[in-house]
Structure formats: structure tokens, C-alpha cells
């Protein structure tokens, strides 16, 4: 499904990695590892099409993602370091707008169900600025529940999450993989999904 061949990344004069090849097919979980500054985030941003590869190709269903453009974006979700939520809006509004930008219209019922699943019962209509960092991250993660994109690209999804929420994430990823989804993620915390072997890619 997702094939990466001979990928290289340079930032400024500095080469982060080169000759990187791997592929990911349905139901697979891939963890990108590496010390700080080894290009984990750059790799994920490249997979999103933000960064142009210095060399190599990224193909989705056999076609270059730069040519697919919007068709590819309809099939992927990216969750970066930044939560992409607005302090001035409440959790519900944030989720509905986030889903809208990702191309799907979500009604209040679905959105509230997703937020409750993420453990935000009773917080749905509070302005996000009164929520804690962990709760904000949960609002952002709720976006994963309302779409049906097969490819998830998660950059440090576990930051600011407590033990309960980490368990929730493991369960969420497990269900997604069981539905033939694909997940690429980076993390510095342990994340294991029962019954699924985590493939590891180390950038050095």
C-alpha cells in the first residue's frame, strides 16, 4: 500500500537520512525510532507531502503521493506535535471543524460519542482553554475516531497522556489495525498492541 524507496532528506546543508526503503501493508504497525534530531518528524512530514524528498519516492497504491495529492489526503490522517485545536472554541466545535477540514461532515451525536469515548464526558462544551494539556491531546486524538481513513500517521501521540489514555490509544490502534488500517507512529514511551507485531524502523 505505502511504499517508500530510497528516500533521502536534507535540512539545510545537513543530511538527515538517505537510502531509506520500507513498505507498509494493511494491518501493519510501524514505529519509527531514533534519537532526537535524527529526522523522525521530517520523515513523517515527508509522508504527508509537506516536505519534498531530496531523493527517492513515496508511493501510495503504486502512485507517487505528489501526483495523487488530494486522493491521497482523503485516505490519511496526520496528527502532529501541534494539536490543531483552537483555544476559543469548545471541544465539540473543534472536533467538528477538524473533521470538516478532513472532508467529512460529522453531526453532534457522532462527535459527542467520539469525545466521550476519549474520556471527555462533561467537557464537550467547555472552551478548550480551560482544559489541561492531556485533555487537549484527547480532543485532538478524537479526530481519529470520526474518520475512516486507512492510514494514520501519528507523531508522538502519547505526549501529555496519562496511563489510562495510553491504554485507550493502544485499544484504538488495535481496532484500527483489525479493520485493515495502517499506523505509522513515533514515540519515546512504550506502546504495544496486543496480538500485533510492531515493526520498527530505526533512523541513525
Amino acid at each position: 500500500m505505502l511504499e517508500i524507496s530510497n528516500l533521502a532528506c536534507t535540512r539545510g546543508d545537513h543530511q538527515l537520512f538517505s537510502g531509506l526503503s520500507f513498505s507498509l501493508s494493511e494491518g501493519e504497525l510501524l514505529q519509527v525510532q531514533g534519537e532526537n534530531g535524527k529526522g523522525k518528524t521530517s520523515l513523517l512530514r515527508m509522508l504527508c507531502g509537506f516536505l519534498a524528498p531530496a531523493a527517492g519516492e513515496i508511493r501510495w497504491r503504486g502512485q507517487d503521493i505528489r501526483d495523487l495529492d488530494e486522493e491521497y489526503y482523503a485516505e490519511m490522517v496526520y496528527l502532529g506535535h501541534l494539536n490543531a485545536i483552537k483555544d476559543e472554541l469548545n471541544a465539540l466545535e473543534n472536533l467538528r471543524i477538524g473533521a470538516g477540514l478532513a472532508g467529512c461532515e460529522v453531526d453532534d451525536k457522532e462527535a459527542i460519542a467520539a469525545l466521550r469515548h476519549m474520556g471527555l464526558r462533561g467537557r464537550e462544551t467547555l472552551p478548550v482553554k480551560v482544559l489541561s494539556q492531556g485533555q487537549r491531546r484527547r480532543v485532538a486524538l478524537a479526530r481519529l475516531l470520526v474518520g475512516n481513513a486507512p492510514l494514520w500517521i501519528l507523531d508522538e501521540p502519547l505526549t501529555a497522556l496519562d496511563v489510562g489514555a495510553v491504554g485507550l490509544m493502544q485499544e484504538l490502534i488495535g481496532t484500527h489495525l483489525a479493520k485493515n488500517g495502517m499506523v505509522i507512529f513515533t514515540t519515546h514511551q512504550p506502546l504495544e498492541v496486543a496480538g500485533v507485531e510492531t515493526r520498527r524502523l530505526t533512523l541513525a
Binding site: C48, E71, Y78, N83, L101, A102
Partner: peptide
């Protein structure tokens, strides 16, 4: 740009 929404906008499957 600062809160990451712009990244999500660039990934929007529409125009």
C-alpha cells in the same frame, strides 16, 4: 500556523 491547524488544512482532501 502556530497551533497546527494550517497543517491540517494542507492535508484537506478538497481543493
Amino acid at each position: 500556523y502556530l497551533d497546527g491547524t494550517l497543517e491540517q488544512m494542507l492535508l484537506a482532501p478538497q481543493s
